[in-house]
C-alpha cells in the first residue's frame, strides 16, 4: 500500500509528547478490558454449566475476536500518537492525525473563537494537557492532545494573540 501522506509537503510538524502513549494506554485498558470482561461472561457461565444456550464455539469466538481487535488497537497506539502533529503557519494552524484514516485540518487564526485547555486525571499526573480550538462551526474538531503543560500554555497564548490580531467576523 502506498503510504504517501496527504498533508501538503514542506511543513515542519511539531509532534506531541511521547508520554501521551501512556494516556492512550490507560484509555485503551479501561475501554477494552471492560468490554472483554463483559463479553467473556457467557464463556464463563457456559463453562461452569450455568448456561446452556451459547454453544461453546460461539462463547469462545466472540471474546477471542474482541481480544484480537483490542490487541490490534493496542499495537497501533504508539504509531497513532506519533502521527499526531501540528504546525503553526503565518496565518493558520495545521493539525494532522491518523494512520489509516488520515486527516489534515487547517484552522485560520482569524476564525478561532476561543481556545480551551483540558487536563484529565492521567494527563495531569504526566504533566500533559489537551488543547482544543473552537470556531463558529461545530464541524471543526480541532484538538491537539498530549501537549506538555508549558507547551500547551505557550500555544494557547500564541494562538490567542494571533487570533486577536487577525480576528474576522463570521
Amino acid at each position: 500500500m502506498p503510504t504517501e501522506a496527504i498533508d501538503p509537503p514542506g511543513i515542519a510538524w511539531l509532534r506531541v509528547s511521547p508520554k501521551y502513549v501512556t494516556v492512550r494506554l490507560v484509555e485503551w485498558a479501561i475501554g477494552n478490558l471492560i468490554a472483554l470482561a463483559v463479553l467473556s461472561l457467557p464463556l464463563a457461565f457456559t463453562l461452569m454449566g450455568w448456561w446452556t444456550w451459547p454453544p461453546l464455539w460461539l462463547a469462545v469466538t466472540v471474546p477471542a475476536v474482541m481480544l484480537v481487535l483490542a490487541l490490534w488497537r493496542l499495537a497501533l497506539i504508539p504509531r497513532q500518537v506519533r502521527a499526531i502533529g501540528y504546525a503553526e503557519r503565518d496565518d493558520d494552524l495545521l493539525i494532522r492525525g491518523g494512520i489509516f484514516f488520515q486527516r489534515t485540518l487547517v484552522v485560520p487564526y482569524g476564525r478561532m473563537q476561543y481556545v480551551d485547555i483540558g487536563v484529565g486525571p492521567v494527563e495531569r499526573s504526566l504533566g500533559l494537557c489537551t488543547l482544543k480550538l473552537h470556531t463558529a462551526s461545530a464541524g471543526t474538531n480541532a484538538e491537539i492532545p498530549g501537549l506538555p503543560a508549558d507547551e500547551g500554555a505557550r500555544l494557547r497564548e500564541q494562538l490567542s494573540a494571533r487570533g486577536a490580531a487577525r480576528l474576522a467576523g463570521l
Partner: peptide, 20 residues
C-alpha cells in the same frame, strides 16, 4: 470569506486510489 476551517480526509481505500 465564509470558510471557517478545512480538513483533508483519506481512508485506506481512498489511499489505494490516490484520492482524498
Amino acid at each position: 470569506q465564509r470558510t471557517q476551517s478545512m480538513a483533508l480526509h483519506q481512508g485506506p481505500l481512498a489511499r489505494r486510489f490516490r484520492v482524498a
